[in-house]
Every structure is written in structure tokens, then in C-alpha cells.
Amino acid sequence: MNFLNAITLIGNYLFIPGLTYGCQLALGALGVTLIYAILRYSNFAHGETMAFGTMVTIFATWGLQKLGVSLGPLPTALIAMPVGILMTVVLCLVSDRVVYRYHRKQRSDPVIFLIASIGVMFLYNGLIRFVIGPDDQIFTDGERFIITAREFKTLTGLKEGLAFKTTQGITIVVTAVIVAALFWFLNKTRTGKSMRAYSDNEDLALLSGINPDRVVMVAWILTAALATIAGTLYGLDKSFKPFTYLQILLPIFAAAIVGGIGSPVGAIAGGFVIAFSEVAVTFAYRKFVSYLAPESWQPDGLLQLLSTDYKFAVSFSILVIVLLVRPTGIFRGRSI
């Protein structure tokens, strides 16, 4: 019984949050990695792109709520998301046309692209704060829980509850669908294949008649969609605050690099590695140990490796270890 309680505890506080957070990071890292694979620079504006997509989705959600449209137990944001994706695609394509295309034609150094993306980041940042303000926005509606802790307790008779929030369930399902669709697109369709060819060897791809403008455009569309979905899921699960989207940039980059930057599979793996280690290292194991250990061994501390304020340190340490041991990342992305 104690053993089951301990497992439930871990599931409730470690596995489910880790899985959800991992999905959100994986979607974010996929966007970063796609831009890296096609345009060959680290896009610092990605966090703000996520925030922008979420912001538009929030406005669309509010609009739908005013009209009385709802999805019943599911959050309205799910049907508002296409609007957010559309606007973010427009924003990304306009930014590419106005900013990045010039540098691409000039064949600028990747670092120049990176600095340009910092400029774009400033711009988006101001735009978002200008429109929606810097404060918290909550836009979750519908049923809050798929299963509450109390329901679980009465169902199983265990002392520990297992709460499963609707937003967590949605995050996991949506991520699975999106990732499957993305891989189908990259591996099966003509456009997807041409993108992979372009990422592998630009010159060879150009020689075979692949249109680079089209590849870049599709890359931006995919990135914008991924960013909006990742941002909205993150916003639904936690809450929308523009500043957090700047902060989430570090774990996202860490996930992309840990998995191997430029490799989509790596981005997903990296996202889960970062998320689970963040949650596992900042988890207080006291109760877990108290279930498993005999009476006399009860710990008196919290048994927490690091306080949650240091969660950045976790993604950073993993990043450093990977850079030291295997600079190309787990899945051998583009090397140095």
C-alpha cells in the first residue's frame, strides 16, 4: 500500500507535470530547431513569437466567449488557436520579408542573423506589452480537472491523490497529434522532403531545383504554428504573462541543443530531458521517502536537491554537461 502511495505521489507531482512541461518545451524547441535547420541561426525572438501567438489566441478566446461559443468541458482557446496561428504566420512572414530576407541575400554571418533576431525580439516584446500589457491574463475555461485528487482517492482508496488537469491532458494529446503530423509532413510529403534536403545540403538542394524561398516560407509557417501552439498550451497550463515567455527561452534553447540542434527528434527528446530533470531536481522527496522507508528512518529535511528558484540552473547544468561530453547533442545535430 505504501508503495502504491509513493508511486501515486511521484505520478502526481513529478511525472504528470514533467510530461506536460516536456511537451511544451518540445514544441518550443521544435520551432527553434526548424529555423536553425533551414535558416541556420538561433532565433532569439522565438519566446516572443510564442507570446505573440498566445496573445492573439487570448483575444480570439475572449471574442468567442463574448459570442457565447464554447467547447463545453474543453477550453475555448482550442478553437481560438487557428486565429492565433494565422496571425503569427503573417507576423513571421512579414518579419522575414522585411528583416531576414535582406541578410539572406547578403549571405550575412549567422551571428548577424542572431543580432537581427534580438532586434525583432525587442520589437515583438514592445508590441505585446503595448497591446495586452505586462500583466497576468487567465483565459482558461471549461472543466478544470479530468480527475481530481479527491475522486482518485475515493476511486482507489489510496491516501495519496492523483490530480489530472484538463490543460495537462490537452497539452499531451495536442502535442502527440502535432508531432505526428509534423513528422508525417517532413518524411512523407514532397515539400517536407525538400525541406530536409535543403537543411542537409543547401547547394545540392538548389541544384536539384528546390525553390529556397518556398522552403524558407514553409519553415516560417511551421515555426509560427508550433510557437503559437506551444505558447497557448503553456499559457493555458500556467498563466499568460509576457515576461515568462522571455524566460522560457533558456530551457527551450537548452532542449534544442541537448537533443542536437537542427534535429527534430532531438528537440523532442531534449524537451523531455530538460523538463523531467528540472522537475525531478526541484522536487521535495520527503514524503516519498517517508512512504518507503521504515518508521525510524524518517527524514527531517525536505529532501529537496535544489529550490524551485534554481530551475534555470538545472537546464543550464545539463546544457554544460552536454556541451562538454557531446557537443553535437544526443541525436547528433548539426555540429560545431
Partner: peptide, 28 residues
Amino acid sequence: KVSLGLRSDYLAIATLGISEIIIAMLKN
């Protein structure tokens, strides 16, 4: 020591990380 000698973006991301950690440390 850790990130120089690797690609230039890696230094960028490593410094981004260390600065966040320093601030977290000073706050806590």
C-alpha cells in the same frame, strides 16, 4: 572555459544561462 571553442551561438546561450542563474542566486 566551457563554451569557448564551440560554435558562437553556444557561447550566447551559455552566457544567457549563467546570467539567469546569477540573478536567481542574488534573489534567493
